[in-house]
């Protein structure tokens, strides 16, 4: 749990992302129903809920990754800093550079570890020379708690790492683009407790610059890292509010039974 002055800081923060009446359909399957969620700036927001309730689907709406699924249709209004992201004038490529994403399944590119991390900075021209790029790669790998394990084999293929290492590589790759919002879909599901703690520390650091949205199946993790929590159930957001309030004093009986382990 976070202490009181952190709570007060949350209160003065502005909305980074606003979602209103969002509906998502996969063909005829209505996967997200009437979701209203505000993501605050410089805050960690946790999405919790049983498997298949639409957490990943909603997360993918926030950077328009659902565009890549032909059967998927998104309705409703989602704005980032007041700008409608589904407006035809918005370039999804720029949006995704601003709203980075770590996927549920690790998906390193079939390239070297170095090139995986350098990918974003290269395509966006974030660095001016090789030395700067080296620095970015190193600092991102350090932040993702992977540097010590790979510093001697940066040219080895990223696909040759273990599952947990691959996931941290994907985290490093995502933060190397310096996004304003970072969407993390179960980033710790394949990690041991030590790496998990390091990633949680990273998330807490990132909060000073970015807003972070994290999907997690671990109640403890949601309680540890997030300031706000949204509970998803069967495509609806049942309850959304301060993490402390959700975990200590849930208003909806479904939330209560989920966090105490009775549904899910």
């Amino acid at each position: 749990m976070k202490d009181m002055n952190m709570e007060s800081r949350v209160l003065i923060q502005s909305n980074k992302i606003e979602a209103r009446k969002v509906q998502v359909y996969y063909g005829t399957n209505h996967a997200i129903k009437d979701v209203d969620v505000d993501i605050l700036d410089k805050t960690v927001t946790a999405f919790i809920g049983p498997s298949g309730c639409g957490k990943s689907t909603f997360l993918r709406c926030l950077n328009r990754m659902n565009d890549t699924i032909p059967s998927c249709r998104v309705e409703g209004l989602i704005t980032i800093e007041g700008e409608d992201i589904n407006d035809p004038r918005v370039d999804p490529v720029q949006l995704r550079a601003k709203v980075g994403m770590v996927f549920q399944k690790p998906n390193p590119f079939p390239k070297s570890i170095y090139d995986n991390v350098a990918y974003g900075p290269k395509i966006h021209g974030l660095t001016r020379n090789k030395a700067e790029l080296d620095d970015v790669v190193e600092s991102c790998l350090r932040k993702a708690a992977l540097w010590n394990e790979v510093k001697d084999r940066l040219q080895a293929p990223g696909t040759g790492l273990s599952g947990g290492q691959q996931q941290r590589l994907c985290i490093a790759r995502a933060i190397a683009t310096s996004p304003e919002v970072l969407l993390m879909d179960e980033p710790c599901s394949a990690l041991d407790p030590i790496a998990t703690a390091q990633v949680e520390e990273l998330i807490d650091d990132l909060r000073s610059q970015f807003s972070v949205v994290i999907v997690t199946h671990s109640m403890q993790q949601a309680a540890r890292v997030s300031q706000r929590t949204a509970f998803f159930h069967l495509g609806n957001v049942v309850e959304y509010g301060e993490t402390t309030q959700i975990f200590t004093n849930p208003k909806d009986p479904r939330t209560e039974s989920y966090i105490t382990g009775r549904i899910g």
């Binding site: 079939p110 974003g120 395509i123 790759r173």
Partner: peptide
Amino acid sequence: QSLRDGSLGLGATPSETVRSV
């Protein structure tokens, strides 16, 4: 598809994704 998603999710254009991934 996950490789394409990874690249597009970093803000790469479709043609960059094709070329580099």
